[in-house]
Design a protein around this nucleic acid. Structure first.
Lengths: 342, 342
DNA sequence: AATCAAGATGTAATCGATTACAGAAGCTTC
DNA sequence: GAAGCTTCTGTAATCGATTACATCTTGATT
């Protein structure tokens, strides 16, 4: 009873046509006469035929798949983006492979492998820390044109990048706090080597300077986007002799845990401390007090990145031109920010 | 300059051996003499050769890839599991394809396609709502043995299932609340058609009955695991004339938003209301008050599911035997539960 | 020295689709 | 009615690896 998967030959036999005709019915049905087409489709239904992807991929030299490189899949920020990438790619007939770049194996190596061995046609990377070695490898294989950055990016690689207007986000946060009367504003950063962290911090400092605010060095508190680092930052904050009246955190997760830890130390948010986050995770609106934050259009970012990649994969002319799409950000004012006390 | 990707023939030419030898160097190096092996590896390095996956897959009739079906990729609960699945599969040489079953396209159809067209060798589904039609299709293609449930499952399909001991979790929650003196305990459920929600609710009711507690029908509050539904449940709760003193929520997200909304209504947790969640999301320990909850070993679940699938893919004898692995759960006592007031 | 086994390597068929090229059939047009 | 066009379909080469089988060495055994 070991009935094998039917192949195109079996369908051809049942339909009484050649394999070429069956193949055409699959890929360019309009080129067949109506009667033949029907015959073939009937045979396909009758046999339960499914095309063999490996054979098709070998012949067409395409994979019909895209790799998404995610730094830390466990982070809800990325998984939402992944979801919308999946949606667009699936709608266009592409499969989605994922790889978590936190994996022990060298991600650059792994990614090059996927791209060069034909497992995928393109790459969307949410991780900006891609090695230049990987860039070189892909360039040599003429595959660099099939890479798109999403959210994070690398200035070393001139590739299209779909990202939020991070600098604007930081400015909005500072302006909001400034308008509320705050003059002593701290900042909890992301990882030092992260491009988002760098941009947000730089814009934070620049805006403070523009507004004539001095930022004491100790008010720049190092974090790494995680919950744990937010709590740690809170400890440093409460220990300061001259405590800032507001904090701008480079991620919502840090903001949430910072608030929680501050409360444990008897500080009340927003009365004693105003807090602004970044990302607008869904939960930001479902905590008490709800979090004032900078919203990123995560769904849009994923969608646009996927569309950009598809465009490039479909275009015959390889275009390695860097194109930057800045997705707008919004200040979402909720309950963790208030005017400075009397 | 359109240098094509080198193929095995090119390597063979450079190394001065046959293509068969090169292939052996790749797949069973121990069968070659040391000198030949070195020659081939040198040639591989010199040419920058990478095997063409499509060709290999076609010939070996294997894909070296696994599909993970996720209900709602945006949910942090699932993405952690996905991460550990990725880790184990990558370490064993498998690629990971993901598909979000919330996608508009019929997931059963999509999954069958992936399995039957050879895109993947196996399936790990975190979604228990798989159609029996899909089961039939896979069974006919002798592919049902390559499917593993993780977290969720379906009683209609006799397949291996790696899951938490959900009933135990519910009992631990009830017992904990009971021990604190609570006698009026409510439950916020998951979606009515979800197997986890069913099991947790049934165990909740059973344990309450065993302890001699009556559960008023209105105390079973319908939810759907989401933040929004937790807030909605809170509204119902605060409106009750004879309010329960404790709530067991079927997910942490519902618990967190329920607490937040209750606070808005002036209820204090845990003084006026004790709350137990389910999952132990990372954030549960980073909110104030921190959430008492039932911990699931998400990393372990993903890891075990991946290992189970790999075992099955490697075994020659197809084994369609249902095997259930119950992963332990723990009650994590934090600050949202307390003894009932005087 | 003859026989045989084991080990190393090469030859060529094969996996299952796509597609260039060719041939057949039907229609126009002069 | 011949030539020229379309439109439809078939033949066979091709994509790039793996592997059954054959061949050739080499060394051991008797």
């Amino acid at each position: 009873m070991q009935k094998l998967q039917p192949k195109i030959k079996d369908v051809a036999h049942v339909a009484g046509v050649s394999t070429a005709t069956v193949s055409r019915a699959l890929t360019q049905p309009e080129r067949l006469s109506e009667t033949t087409r029907e015959k073939v489709f009937d045979a396909i239904r009758a046999t339960g035929y499914r095309v063999n992807k490996a054979a098709r991929n070998l012949r067409t030299r395409r994979a019909g798949a895209v790799l998404v490189l995610v730094p830390n899949l466990g982070n809800p920020f990325f998984s939402t983006i992944l979801s919308s990438i999946n949606e667009v790619l699936a709608a266009n007939g592409y499969s989605v492979l994922v790889f978590d770049s936190q994996q022990p194996s060298a991600p650059g190596q792994v990614v090059s492998d996927y791209m060069l061995n034909g497992s995928v046609d393109g790459l969307i990377t949410l991780d900006g820390n891609v090695s230049s070695a990987m860039g070189d490898t892909l360039k040599n294989a003429h595959m660099l044109g099939n890479v798109v950055f999403c959210c994070e990016w690398s200035d070393a690689l001139p590739l299209p990048s779909i990202r939020s207007d991070n600098a604007l986000g930081a400015r909005l946060a500072v302006d909001h706090l400034f308008a509320l009367g705050h003059r002593r504003i701290a900042h909890v950063t992301g990882p030092a080597d992260n491009i988002l962290a760098k941009v947000r911090r730089a814009a934070f400092e620049a805006r403070c300077a523009e507004l004539g605010l001095t930022v004491a060095p100790e008010w720049i508190i190092p974090g790494d986007f995680t919950l744990a680092s937010g709590a740690h930052a809170a400890e440093q904050l409460v220990a300061m002799p001259e405590r800032p009246t507001a904090v701008f955190c480079a991620s919502d997760e840090m903001a949430l845990s910072l608030i929680s830890r501050c409360k444990q130390h008897g500080l009340s948010v927003p009365k004693d401390l105003s807090v602004v986050g970044f990302d607008d995770l869904e939960i930001a609106g479902f905590v008490q007090p709800s979090l004032t934050t900078i919203r990123q259009d995560r769904t849009g970012l994923g969608r646009r990145a996927a569309e950009e990649l598809i465009t490039r994969l479909n275009s015959v002319q390889p275009q390695e031109i860097s194109r930057i799409v800045l997705s707008p950000v919004d200040l979402i004012i909720r309950d963790t920010t208030a005017t400075i006390g009397p």
